[in-house]
């Protein structure tokens, strides 16, 4: 079984209720109608999108809502506890997939994983990219030194602009199949996101007079 295509969406699984063959992404058995547990699929395969960095956000929303509607707890009030539990776990898997596809950071990490690369932002990984780290160090120092909201907002604007720039660069890198570049941009994006998080904390501290 190859995971390169994001899972075995075409291979038949057996329905837990009637044992009939069903596809991995199926929410319900087309024979007996039983709700199906989530199979091991990645976010693209689960929501039925091609593995590309550029996505149609409105289309993801639409498809996700359509699928979630079919799993709504109200539809399972007269079903067995087992079916309610299956519907719930399927709904949670769809949530995870939705969040992955909607977030450029998670989407990029998944695409690198699909290409057989370990995520550059995975646990226990350390990097020694001087340009990237020097910049990260400088902005964190500037943020630590910022004593008023105006100074914090200026850094916030820069973080937001860099965030957008990284996402654009990720799109270009994946589009050109340049995975090393994509990997580096993903790392940079992670650092800018971390800065944005720190900015929120700093803003709150200043607002509460902790300067």
């Amino acid at each position: 079984m190859t995971e390169a295509a994001g899972g075995d969406s075409g291979a038949p699984h057996a329905c837990w209720s009637c044992h009939g063959p069903i596809t991995a992404a199926a929410l319900f058995c087309h024979v007996c109608g039983a709700v199906q547990p989530p199979r091991p699929l990645d976010a693209f395969a689960r929501l039925g999108f091609p593995g590309r960095f550029e996505v149609d956000a409105a289309e993801i929303d639409k498809r996700y809502r359509g699928l979630q509607q079919r799993l709504h707890p109200d539809r399972f009030t007269k079903r067995s506890p087992r079916e309610r539990a299956i519907a719930e776990s399927q709904a949670m898997s769809l949530n995870d997939a939705y969040e992955t596809l909607k977030d450029p950071l998670k989407r990029a990490a998944l695409l690198l994983e699909r290409a057989g690369r370990s995520s550059p932002i995975g646990e226990n990984r350390t990097i020694q990219d001087p340009a990237l780290l020097m910049e990260a160090m400088e902005v964190r120092e500037a943020l630590a030194a910022a004593t008023d909201l105006a100074a914090v907002e200026a850094i916030g604007k820069r973080a937001a602009a860099e965030d957008r720039r990284c996402i654009e660069a990720l799109g270009a890198a994946f589009g050109a199949g340049e995975l090393d570049k994509a990997s580096r941009q993903l790392t940079a994006l992670k650092y800018w996101r971390k800065l944005a998080e720190e900015i929120r904390g700093r803003r709150a501290a200043i607002a509460h007079g902790a300067g």
Partner: peptide
């Protein structure tokens, strides 16, 4: 020495 742990966004000099 300048190193970083991207998973948590840490940077250490």
């Amino acid at each position: 020495g300048l190193v970083g742990a991207p998973a948590c966004g840490d940077v250490m000099k």
